[in-house]
Amino acid sequence: MKRIRSSIIDGVGFDLVLVGIPLVFLLLFSGLPLVYNVLMSFQEVDLFSLGEVFRPFVGLKNYRALFAQPEFWPIMWNTVIFVFCSIGGQFIVGFGLAVFFNTGFRGSTFIRGLFLVSWVMPGLVVGATWNWILAGDFGVLNYLLSSIGVISENIFWRSDINYSLWAVIITNIWLGTAFNMILLSVGLAGIPKDLYEAASLDGATAFQKFWTITVPMMRSTTGAVISLGLIFTLQQFDLFAAITGGGPANSSNVAQYWAWELSFRQYDFARGATISTIMIAVVMVASVFYVRSTRHEVRG
């Protein structure tokens, strides 16, 4: 007993306690629900068996039924477009801003800090604000686009099936850019200044320095940002709830929103869990990339 106590106070035991607390927490509140979710996707679930853990096992029936639904592939395709375009937009705008603020002009750190405001705002509030911006008849976005001559008649962003998904994507790009910018700024700040000086003396133009020094030196940061972006984008729920509700006619529906609809609107918990399980698999692949890219940091 005494040995255990002294080990906890000043030995290996202390490390184990430090690791143990979060591990227990994670297993209890993340691990178990995940396992329960996966289990549920192989069971027959109805409102009468909701409270049980062991329900009739149905194999891949839920998966087959889900794949057979006519909206399955369109929604998956929407998800791909949403994830790909959101991450692309967030990353490109975020990188541009990060490079811009990295020039270190007067007040750059302060203004960069202000950008975080967008990130701390609740998704529902962001969605509500953008509803006004995106509004078909009085929205400021339409006004802007028609002023510069891009469009000749108003676009009803939220109710036109051709634009509803894009309404959410535009909002999500705005929401996620700050996060991308901050992470990329940290990466940029980590590139030693003398590499750029050496490259200048070696004859590189600003453009060549960007492609031969900045971009390759940012590889690990980029990997991390994109993997995290994938995870966050697949989590994005509030904006759909606030802006389009997945409609009209599923034109802006994506996997994560559909899972919620199936489970909590149609009370088809098994299919909801099935979609979630598919998404868990995707996120796990992203996590592997994330861990790998943070591990392969290239630093002088």
Binding site: D194, A198, L201
Partner: peptide
């Protein structure tokens, strides 16, 4: 610098790590 035709050896060496 790139038009001066001078080369520099830095204290930190400034080798391109990648």
């Amino acid at each position: 610098p790139r038009h001066r035709d001078v080369a520099m050896v830095f204290q930190s060496y400034a080798l391109y790590p990648h």
